[in-house]
Each structure stands twice: as structure tokens, then as C-alpha cells.
Design a binder for these strands. Structure first.
Length: 277
DNA sequence: GCCACTGTTAGCAT
DNA sequence: CATGCTAACAGTGG
């Protein structure tokens, strides 16, 4: 479930472990993971120092010397892990990056193999469409720009929250939690939202994502940080995966419906549908 | 064993 | 262009 809070937690737990260290080599066990790379592949990384580790949307970016960057998307089950050099790994480990100091190595593990890696030259945003096509960061966008991004859109609000070109980093869990917090029904057409609704949605987005980062993300199945530690925000979910349980605000059983092809949990009493304008 | 379901999104149909 | 399904994969649970 790596959405924005999980990827942020991974990046924060990974950065101190690899920043400043020199890459020895990268071993790729599953070729299709590497979607894009310079001629010669990951061998260009040998001898390069890691300069920074950061996040954009749901992607993790490792910037190295020589203008080289690694861009990871974890999709549903991807993990970035720090492991002692030489420690055994399982069949789901797709990549191992070792460092010349012989210290902990970086591993990419992904059960479902949906994740991808790009090795690019130049600014990552300039070098790959996967990054340049992303919408604004939800914790950076102004309330005015947020309103503008939704204004007049006929799509359902939940679908737009999940659309990475509209706003980057929100996935199924946080979309449901944000909509519950703001009291908006997931099938509401964005065009039907009042200015007040949009304002509450912006506030809830910031609040929920900030709380989730503070709790180090939500662990339902596979997600752990770079040190293998689970998150704690799942204990604060108010609607996600709570079908049939009483709403924490009003006691009405939480419902589950399908919106934008995804399971969507909500309280029919606290999240009334808006009348189309 | 079989079927439904899972955190994402690219690609295709409408 | 905007919007909405589906498939890609592997595993889990009923």
C-alpha cells in the first residue's frame, strides 16, 4: 500500500542509511523491473556516491553523482529495504545495490512484480515522464490551486483524488479516509462540490496525510519502512476496511461500494451525496 | 480446488 | 480531451 505517507516514511528511513555512500554495484534479478536505463544498464552506478534520497508522489528518488538518479515506483507490494551485506534474500528480491564500504545493502523486493525502476541521467523530473506528468504535492498545493484542479470536473471526487496527474500521492486508503474526514461522499461529482466542500477537502487532505506520516504509514500486508518496521496508522483508519463496523462519529454501519474500480468505504450518514449544481 | 479480492496505473474503449 | 474499465502479477482467504 505504499501511498504518499508510506513512501515518505521509506525515504526518511532510507536516507540516513545510504546518503554519502559509494555504490559498488547493482545486481538486477528481474530484468523487466528496469524500465529505462542508459546503455550498459545499472553498471553506470559503480563508483557513484549517493547524494540524496527524496519522494515525489508515490515514487522514491535516489540521486547520485554524475547526474544519475534511480526512480522507484513500489506499486502495490514493492519494498525498499536496508539489509546487512550478505544476509540471505528470498525469491521476491528483484534488485540488490551494494556499497563499497561493505556496509548494509539496498534491496528492492516486490511480490507482485508491478513495481518499476528507472535509471536516468539529468534532473529526474526532466528525464522521465513518470515524474513530469505528476500533479502537485498535496502537502504543498495552495487551497486556491486545489479548488482550481477540481472546478468543473464531472468525474467522481474519489477518482480525481486517485488521479496522479490531478494530485500526486493519494491512493485508495487515504482517499477514503480523507473523504470521510471531510464529510464528502466518494461518488460526488467534483463539479457539485461547493467552495466550502473543496476547502474542507483540502484541509482534510493535509490533516490525514500529515497524521499518517507521523504514524509512519499504514501496514495492512506488505508495507514496511527501509528498516523493516511496520507503520501504525492502520489503527487510526476510520472507514477503510471497516465494512459493517459502526461509524466512529454516528454509529451507522460503514458501507462498501465500488468507485473508480476500487473498494470504497464510507458512512452514508456522515458523507451525504451533494446535489448536482 | 475454485473464486474473489488486494495497496497501482497504463492502455484502451467509450 | 475526459472519463471509466481491465489487465498485468502473486498471494491470501473464504
Amino acid at each position: 500500500m505504499p501511498e504518499l505517507p508510506e513512501v515518505e516514511t521509506i525515504v526518511r528511513s532510507l536516507a540516513p542509511g545510504i546518503r554519502g555512500r559509494v555504490i559498488e554495484r547493482a545486481r538486477l534479478f528481474f530484468k523487466p523491473l528496469l524500465r529505462q536505463a542508459p546503455r550498459g544498464g545499472l553498471a553506470v552506478l559503480a563508483g557513484k556516491r549517493v547524494l540524496s534520497v527524496r519522494r515525489r508522489g508515490k515514487m522514491a528518488i535516489i540521486e547520485c553523482e554524475g547526474g544519475l538518479s534511480l526512480v522507484f515506483h513500489l506499486k502495490m507490494t514493492g519494498q525498499l529495504l536496508l539489509a546487512a551485506s550478505g544476509e540471505t534474500w528470498d525469491k521476491h528480491t528483484r534488485l540488490i545495490v551494494t556499497f563499497s564500504d561493505g556496509g548494509p545493502e539496498l534491496r528492492f523486493r516486490d511480490v507482485r512484480k508491478f513495481g518499476f525502476l528507472l535509471c536516468v541521467s539529468g534532473t529526474p523530473e526532466g528525464a522521465c515522464a513518470e515524474l513530469s506528468s505528476l500533479g502537485p504535492e498535496p502537502l504543498d498545493i495552495t487551497i486556491e490551486d486545489f479548488g482550481r484542479a477540481l472546478r468543473g470536473r464531472k468525474a467522481r471526487i474519489k477518482g480525481l483524488l486517485l488521479d496522479q496527474t490531478v494530485i500526486a500521492g493519494i491512493g485508495n486508503i487515504y482517499a477514503d479516509e480523507i473523504l470521510f474526514d471531510s464529510g464528502i461522499h466518494p461518488v460526488t461529482r467534483a463539479a457539485a462540490l461547493t467552495k466550502k466542500d473543496a476547502g474542507r477537502l483540502w484541509e482534510s487532505t493535509r490533516k490525514i496525510l500529515a497524521l499518517a506520516i507521523e504514524a509512519k504509514g499504514s501496514t495492512l500486508r506488505d508495507y514496511v519502512d527501509a528498516e523493516g518496521k511496520a507503520g501504525g496508522f492502520q489503527f487510526f483508519h476510520k472507514v477503510y476496511d471497516r465494512e459493517g463496523e459502526p461509524c466512529v462519529k454516528c454509529g451507522t454501519p460503514v458501507q462498501r461500494i465500488r468507485v473508480a474500480g476500487r473498494s470504497s468505504y464510507f458512512c452514508a450518514r456522515c458523507q451525504r451525496k451533494r446535489r448536482a449544481v
